[in-house]
């Protein structure tokens, strides 16, 4: 039947196309070098705050290496002082030796006129002509002694301040140098590091204590977020050095009630034994914020960090 031949043709066509595809279709492998894994550590806030804490018994590095930001072979600063050229100074003296030469032709000139004078007393025009050049030679003779004076007018200038300017070519704004090695020595805490600070647990303890003691006036929870920041100065034993200072300014009955309640909480809470005396410097003065809205999630504002 007609359909059978058609399907046979179709099958043959497909077989041919498939065969062609199998032969030609190959995935070329893309050359991609595996990327080096970038290690990432997850730190809790407490771990992070303790990370930069200096350790007093850390081993001392035998040689503190200079802090460098780039690895490079240290370049010697080029000596750019002007070279003192001694040759020029010698030059005027070297020119001197030719000076004695001019007298030689003079002798010849003088000798020649003598011979004709012996033979013929007639004045020889040639002799006269030869005598005439004598005059300019004598003039040059007188001028030559002046020549050595000229080079002496330019003595090599040796300005010390200029050399200093050439030497210090580094940009004054740069704050690190290149060196042969990156400094890997552990420091005992940098200036901006959070060394010897309050650990998160201490802050949490302090906050928990204050929040537990804080009894905001009735209705304060419904009001808009009211924040009262109080500066607390501690003594070493955890008691208050002076009374709590209210930094937030405001007015109104509700604000006063709120402020008083916060001050009360601070006063009642002492002594704050959760603060370790060895970190006294960091909690000597603390700004603590009482927030009605975030009463249970607030973060104290720390001053001397």
């Amino acid at each position: 039947m007609q359909m059978r031949t058609a399907s046979m043709i179709s099958t043959g066509l497909h077989a041919a196309v498939l065969l062609f595809a199998v032969v030609t279709f190959t995935g070329k492998s893309l050359e991609a070098t595996p990327v080096e894994a970038l290690p990432v550590d997850l730190l809790s806030e407490k771990e992070f705050s303790e990370m930069t804490k200096g350790v007093k018994d850390a081993p001392k590095p035998d040689k503190p290496k200079p802090l460098v930001e780039k690895i490079d072979t240290p370049k010697p600063v080029e000596q750019q002082a002007p070279k003192i050229d001694t040759k020029k100074e010698i030059a005027p003296t070297a020119e001197k030796p030719p000076e004695p030469k001019p007298p030689e032709p003079k002798k010849e000139a003088k000798a020649e006129p003598e011979k004709p004078a012996q033979e013929t007393p007639k004045p020889d025009p040639i002799a006269e002509k030869l005598k005439q050049p004598d005059k300019p030679k004598q003039e040059t003779k007188t001028e030559q002694p002046k020549k050595p004076d000229k080079p002496e007018k330019k003595p090599p200038k040796f300005d010390a301040s200029k050399i200093a300017a050439l030497l210090d070519k580094r940009d004054p704004t740069r704050n690190a140098a290149t060196g042969s090695e990156l400094s890997s020595s552990p420091s005992l805490g940098t200036a901006s590091g959070l060394a010897a600070q309050l650990s998160q647990s201490e802050i949490d303890a302090l906050r928990a204590r204050l929040m537990a003691l804080w009894n905001p006036p009735v209705g304060a929870q419904d009001a808009n977020s009211v924040q009262i920041t109080i500066r607390i100065r501690f003594k070493r034993d955890g008691t208050l050095e002076i009374g709590p200072q209210v930094l937030t300014s405001g007015s109104g009955v509700q604000f006063n009630a709120m402020r008083d309640s916060a001050v009360r909480a601070v006063l009642v809470g002492q002594p704050y034994t959760m603060l370790r005396p060895d970190h006294y410097d960091s909690w000597k003065e603390i700004d603590f914020t009482f927030d009605t809205k975030e009463m249970f999630h607030d973060i104290p504002v720390r001053r001397p960090l």
């Binding site: 359909m3 058609a6 399907s7 046979m8 043709i9 179709s10 099958t11 066509l13 497909h14």
Partner: peptide
């Protein structure tokens, strides 16, 4: 295959 057979 069937489609092409029908088409032919």
């Amino acid at each position: 295959v069937w489609v092409w057979a029908i088409a032919i």
